[in-house]
Amino acid sequence: MKVLNIIFFIITTVNCLYAKNLPVKEIFTEEVWRGEILVEGVVAVRKEGKLTIEPGTVILFKSIDIDDDGIGDSELYVEGTIIAKGSKDAPIVFTSESNDKIPSSWKYIMVNHAKYAYFEHVLFEGAFSGLQVHFTKAIVKNSIFRNNVDGFRFSTANIYVCNNKMTKNRHGIRYEERDSKGIIEFNSIQENEIGIFPVTKCGDKVNFRYNNIEKNGYNIKVGDEQKENLSFKNNYFGMIFESEIRKKIYDKHFDKNLPIVNIKPYSKKPFLESDVKCLEEF
């Protein structure tokens, strides 16, 4: 009987949890965020909506986990337009409401089938994915991704990603290239468990160049389902000798079923701030 009671309790509890609905706020017109914004549940920028975020704005995502999957449920979901342009002195911050800022405290900023996305001088921290971009043209510059499971993640997108810092994430950049096009340059991808994680369906339509990819558990780790060889030419991997660089690139050299990551020519010295030249137009 005691067992039955426990089972009944579990079933009732689970049902209650799933019976709850996340609060959803939808943006259908133009909206500007400034100061401190609390996101509890979902904020959805709909197709016709445009969200502009002013420099210095702090967006706090409430740590709620209704489905109990260990990932915070609060998110910003964009199918319209988002312009988040901070400044060097007044960056925009997307972070957890809680003090510890641990990865997965909140879900993500998901830009999916959106009209346009622009992020500059933005800090993304404590999320499951700091920023995900799919089926959208997006520019991401001068920003920091830290303490997330995935810092920056994309698939089938037109992207320009320049002079960002991805650090202390499980994956600095995680991607399935599929039908993407773009350039990822002058980024510092350091101290992540895995610097760059090409999961599957990756090729050479997104050009990774002039990045400092170093001091990660693996600087590049190829996913089990990736079939094509990959090109990561003209990047700096923290070492001078290829044999040393190879120790931090998990590809065919570690597992014969994986493709090869081509790295030559590679830079023998790091790219400096003075080297950075982000494109004005993309």
Partner: peptide, 10 residues
């Protein structure tokens, strides 16, 4: 996966 240029709607 849907491709660039493909007609798509939700």
């Amino acid at each position: 996966t849907p491709l660039q240029g493909e007609l798509y709607g939700l």
